[in-house]
Design a protein around this nucleic acid. Structure first.
Length: 257
DNA sequence: AAGGCTATCAACCGCTTTCTA
DNA sequence: TTAGAAAGCGGTTGATAGCCT
């Protein structure tokens, strides 16, 4: 879709919490609490930028040109101070997003190909709504693009298969340990070595498998391996071994528990 | 032609995670 | 070790195009 880059966004209206005439003492008490909370919140958390001084909405061609030129000359990073340095009336987050999702030279234009679509579906099946991780497996595509594509096209497309999907065991790979309760995880040999050496967390994919998949149910384990097998085009699994609480449960020779 | 409705997707927001001093 | 800053992430919003009546 082509947006008119010169049309201002007429959004973010000040919506009153209640009509003045319909407010009661109770409403005012609630409002006081709300304002108090907001004041405390403001003391703790500073806004990333002053909204009234910033351009918002669709980027103009001129803004794009300024941002692109600046990043080509000075490189990415330091997004918070970038707008000031580059002479843009945008907040740093907005600049970052615009660069990552639109201006970056390696962005792939055009429709999602059937191969890409297939990969998105498979990865989503594996990873869930981890758009940035999915995007990393699709060169030139952004997480935002994939997320939109999923929410608009694929969700509908797959809806008629809903019952089929529902009947399958849910095997979602979680990638951030604090967010999941898992028994089973996968880690590359390289990663283990590095972690042992540096005692740091590996940023690359170190997926853990949801507890459903970690059950002793043979069918679920087979499904899991099927899923991994279908993805080996995209992942280099030669270097990956499963670890399961203690590794002893896994037979690396037979590739099974 | 006009108005309503829907689909799309860029951009925003709030929160979490990671980095750094 | 800790607090604040920076970066990253995913859900949501809203402008716009296009279709339908």
């Amino acid at each position: 879709m082509i947006h008119n880059s010169h049309s201002p966004l007429n959004s973010y209206k000040n919506t009153p919490i209640l009509n003045r005439s319909s407010r009661t003492t109770q409403h005012y008490q609630s409002l006081s609490l709300l304002y108090l909370s907001f004041s405390v919140y403001s003391m703790v958390r500073q806004a990333c930028c002053r909204k009234e001084e910033m351009n918002r909405g669709t980027w103009t061609e001129e803004e794009d040109r300024i941002l692109k030129t600046y990043i080509q000359d000075h490189g990415e990073g330091k997004w918070k101070s970038l707008p000031k340095r580059a002479g843009l009336k945008r907040c740093g987050k907005s600049c970052r997003l615009r660069w990552l999702n639109y201006l970056r030279p390696d962005i792939k234009r055009g429709n999602i190909t059937p191969d890409e679509e297939d990969l998105i579906i498979r990865l989503h099946n594996l990873l869930g709504n981890r758009w940035s991780l999915i995007a990393k497996r699709l060169p030139g595509r952004t997480d935002n693009e994939i997320k939109n594509y999923w929410n608009t096209c694929l969700r509908k497309k797959l809806k008629h298969d809903h019952d089929l999907i529902e009947s399958k065991p849910s095997i979602i790979v979680r990638t951030k340990a604090p967010r999941c309760t898992t028994k089973l995880s996968f880690c590359s040999n390289k990663c283990i070595k590095e972690n042992n050496a540096t005692n740091t967390t590996e940023e690359a994919i170190v997926p853990t498998v949801s507890s459903e998949a970690a059950s002793s149910d043979q069918t679920q384990q087979e499904n899991w391996w099927d899923l991994l097998g279908s993805l080996d085009t995209y992942f280099d699994f030669d270097d990956w071994i499963p670890i399961c609480g203690d590794n002893s449960a896994f037979d690396q020779e037979k590739c099974n528990w």
